[in-house]
């Protein structure tokens, strides 16, 4: 299926990139003419996915890696968001997605990233390979 439109932005896996990722997402979402509530929820989901990459993906590397954010208009009502890193991967995806599970409690991570993504988006899929990286694919219908 060919997307109506798509943008890809790449940014460093640093915490100051979080607000940038949200802004880009909000700007792209505007083409769906979403409500304020829609945009708020979509931004929150993206913030969670990007923060996960920043906190976890490159923690064992000296140099910070990069994160790809792909925003896709699949059809006139469907937004697809992919957040992708080339980091350490998630050894046990099911466990990582359990609410309140975190591997970084010392940073006061609540372990709710995936729970928030699942609650605010219609579908969340996680693909990950150890040492190759992780992709989080999220879809949401707007105006249906």
């Amino acid at each position: 299926m060919k997307a109506l439109s798509e943008v890809k932005v790449t940014f460093p896996a640093e915490s100051r990139s979080e607000s940038f990722a949200r802004s880009v997402t909000a700007a792209f979402s505007a083409r769906f003419d979403p409500s304020v509530n829609d945009v708020g929820e979509i931004k929150t989901a993206v913030s969670e996915a990007v923060t996960n990459c920043i906190v976890h993906a490159y923690r064992e590397k000296k140099e910070k890696g990069r994160i790809d954010l792909i925003l896709r208009e699949e059809d006139k009502n469907t937004l697809c968001i992919i957040v992708r890193d080339k980091g350490c991967g998630i050894p046990d995806i099911q466990k990582a997605m359990e609410p309140l599970y975190t591997s970084a409690p010392e940073e006061e991570r609540a372990g709710l990233g995936f729970a928030v993504m699942e609650s605010f988006m219609d579908k969340v899929t996680v693909k990950s390979k150890p040492d190759k990286g992780t992709s989080v694919i999220m879809k949401r219908k707007i105006h249906t």
Binding site: G40, T44, S47, E48, T51, E108, R109, A110
Partner: peptide, 13 residues
């Protein structure tokens, strides 16, 4: 104006 689950960690802590 915005809060994600990092805010939850902040409140819980």
């Amino acid at each position: 104006t915005f809060m994600d689950s990092s805010g939850i960690g902040l409140v819980m802590g």
